[in-house]
Amino acid sequence: MTDQTASVWLVTGCSSGLGLALATKLARETGHRAVITGLKAAEVEHIAQVAPDRIKATELDITDRNSVAAVIEFTVKAFGRLDVLVNNAGVGQIGAIEELDDGEIARVMNVNLFGTLNMLRAAVPQMRQQRSGRILTLTSMGGFRGRPGVGIYNASKFALEGVHEALAGEVGPLGIDVTMVEPGLFKSSFRGGGMHIAKTIIEDYAGTAGKVRASVAEDYPASAADPTQIAAAILAVGEMAGKPPLRLQLGTDAVAATREKLESMTREVAKWEAVANLASEGGEGSLDTYRSAIAAVTG
């Protein structure tokens, strides 16, 4: 890899899990230049020492806009540009919607949604000035499919999917690509410090959120992907020539879950299409008309 083909990367959340795997691959298996980040620089400095001329370690709190601005400035000052941003930093939360308090909900939203928005709003101006760049954000399958017990995590990731779908349309004409990375289950630090459990437990949710809560204490199943696989895929998409996908599912479980949801939605749209189309008819809506249409669907 030459200076002409090497690009400048900025990766968030590199102290463990997928971020650690990605930072390690950047240092050991590519010629790219990169800024790798953790809440404390010391958490990622050992990776930078593998290739200190190409890899720089620094601290970053994505919920702090001053910290975010500083890391963008650091990247551009170190390498002159920013080609690829990987939004990997995030937190998890287990608990039924009713079980979670305001603080638990705010924590997830502040990191996953608002923290990622901080990164986007700080990085896009640099990429826009360059008229080039690539953004890869980990929205996970949790951003496409909601499941009992992780509803607030889903909410933060669903919001990111909406943001990135719109962003792709806004910045695409300016030479900036956007990809939402949607891995299935893979071995990560989320079953350690990254996943928080609701302080309040309501027994009525034992069969739904409670099952998810219990699963966190178990080992990952054999089918769970290794984070190095996810990291390799992200690297390959980040450096590929041509237009990358808007969404990229990673893992057979992610592909199966996506197809299952799309097929379910297609069936439901078809079933209720006659009721839905009534809203486009002129005149004042008739309750009896809707009642009749619903009765025709439900039998």
Rank of each mutant, 00 (worst) to 15 (best):
D3V: 08
S7Y: 03
T12D: 07
G19T: 09
L22F: 07
K25I: 06
A27F: 02
E29Q: 14
G31D: 15
H32Q: 09
H32T: 04
R33K: 14
G38E: 03
A41F: 01
A42T: 15
I47P: 00
A51W: 11
R54F: 03
K56M: 10
L60Q: 07
D61Q: 07
V68N: 00
I72W: 05
F74I: 07
F79R: 02
R81C: 06
N87C: 14
G92S: 11
Q93W: 15
G95I: 06
E99F: 04
D102R: 04
G103L: 04
I105M: 15
V108L: 08
N110M: 06
F114K: 01
F114Y: 10
G115Y: 01
T116W: 05
R121K: 13
A123E: 02
P125N: 02
Q126H: 10
Q126N: 07
Q130N: 12
Q130L: 12
S132G: 06
R134K: 14
G149F: 08
I152W: 11
A159V: 06
E161R: 14
V163D: 03
A166E: 07
A166C: 14
G169C: 08
V171C: 03
I176G: 08
V178R: 06
T179C: 15
M180G: 02
G184P: 05
S189L: 06
M195S: 13
A198R: 01
T200V: 10
D204Y: 02
Y205K: 08
Y205E: 09
A206H: 15
G210K: 04
V212N: 13
V216T: 14
E218F: 03
D219M: 04
P221V: 00
A224N: 00
A231D: 06
A232S: 12
L235N: 04
L235W: 06
L235G: 02
L246R: 11
L248P: 13
Q249G: 15
G251M: 05
E263Q: 14
R267P: 00
R267N: 09
K271V: 04
E281H: 13
E284L: 12
E284K: 10
E284Q: 12
S286M: 10
S292I: 04
I294C: 03
A296W: 03
V297D: 03
G299P: 14
